[in-house]
């Protein structure tokens, strides 16, 4: 390795322009200076190449009639056929609408929840209490999704806990998961319960990074707790919030199909059926890989556009962006 830089330098000097030479030279110098950092980077690069970039060519099957026997290259081309059958299906608008609605509710209620919890925790002065709350709120994150959904099902059954409560107040017992109008509420609220604690971690870290002198300065200026939060704490974590928000926007069309599939049933398809569950039911269960990939590709294209525009918007508005 030690021999390479001088040789390279010669060749770059001959061909490249001045600025290019200096950055490349700088890069090589950096490798020399911190070789282990680069070695540690290799697995990450490999991971992305092997698991994220290499498989992309498999997306080709969205335009083919994929048959496992013929393989990806050997399967015949069918053009936009799978896309057309998705767009023309009678459920196309319903799944799009459901996906967006659930994402929207998750963004509206689920996204601020950990921020609020983090801000509240930040105000707690008793360490023991703070730790307990944190641990308790983290816990659901580590429970398997299948178990979580099992619990949700038990609770919402016509003789479950929630119905016991409702019945106590004189309401009629209903099997909540059979009622399409409650599905989004159940889905989103259980999602908050699952993720609120985990979500606070990153905000608490950001909160810890705020300079304590700012609080002191604010105090001297006569700011109370509320004003301190508004003018010191929030501005301190706003860039974290925005970056996470952009990432969330990128997932707008990606409602996790697994949880939906574990909770829905035909009587709630109307509000519960999202792109991924629809694809699972129609595509994967029938081993219709091409159809599934066509929908997946369509989905990714939209998500890609969304991230780009959210990032652009954020850069325009307050100079915070992913890139």
């Amino acid at each position: 390795m030690a021999k390479h830089p001088p040789q390279l330098r010669k060749s770059t000097l001959l061909t490249a322009s001045g600025t290019n030479t200096s950055t490349r030279w700088g890069f090589l110098k950096d490798i020399r200076k911190n070789p282990w950092l680069y070695v540690m980077l290799i697995p990450v690069l490999l991971y992305f190449t092997i698991f994220h970039y290499y498989p992309m060519y498999g997306a080709l099957i969205a335009f083919k009639e994929f048959s496992p026997r013929l393989g990806i290259m050997g399967s015949p081309w069918v053009g936009w056929e799978h896309f057309e059958s998705f767009f023309n299906g009678i459920y196309f608008w319903r799944v799009i609408k459901n996906t967006l609605m659930i994402s929207f509710y998750e963004l509206l209620f689920g996204f601020p929840a950990p921020i609020i919890l983090a801000l509240l925790l930040n105000e707690v002065r008793k360490t023991a209490f703070k730790r307990t709350v944190q641990t308790l709120t983290y816990m659901p994150h580590f429970i398997s999704l299948v178990v979580v959904c099992g619990i949700i099902k038990e609770f919402t059954m016509s003789d479950g806990l929630i119905n016991d409560l409702l019945a106590f107040f004189g309401w009629e017992r209903v099997s909540l998961l059979l009622e399409s109008e409650y599905f989004r509420t159940i889905f989103v609220s259980s999602g908050i319960w699952q993720n609120i604690g985990w979500g606070t971690i990153i905000y608490l870290a950001a909160l810890a990074g705020i300079d304590q002198e700012q609080y002191e300065a604010a105090k001297i200026d006569g700011a109370n707790r509320w004003k301190q939060m508004l003018h010191v704490t929030l501005p301190g974590i706003i860039s974290t919030i925005i970056i996470l928000f952009i990432l969330e926007i990128g997932k707008l069309m990606n409602v996790g199909g697994e949880k939906i599939i574990l909770l829905y049933n035909p009587s709630t398809y109307e509000t519960a059926d999202v792109i991924s569950s629809y694809v699972y039911r129609l595509g994967l269960q029938e081993f219709n890989y091409s159809f599934s990939s066509a929908v997946g590709l369509f989905n990714s294209a939209i998500n890609f556009t969304l991230v780009i525009s959210a990032n652009w918007l954020s850069r325009k508005m307050n100079n915070t962006s992913l890139w």
């Binding site: 698991f51 498999g58 299948v146 099992g150 697994e258 599939i261 699972y280 997946g296």
Partner: peptide, 28 residues
């Protein structure tokens, strides 16, 4: 047992999804 069955279902689901995404890789 029920949970195991469900886990299997999930695993199957994941296998299915990854099969689409990673077809080439798994296959080779």
């Amino acid at each position: 047992r029920r949970l195991l069955a469900n886990e299997c279902f999930l695993r199957r689901l994941k296998v299915g999804v990854s099969a689409v995404l990673l077809t080439s890789l798994i296959l080779s």
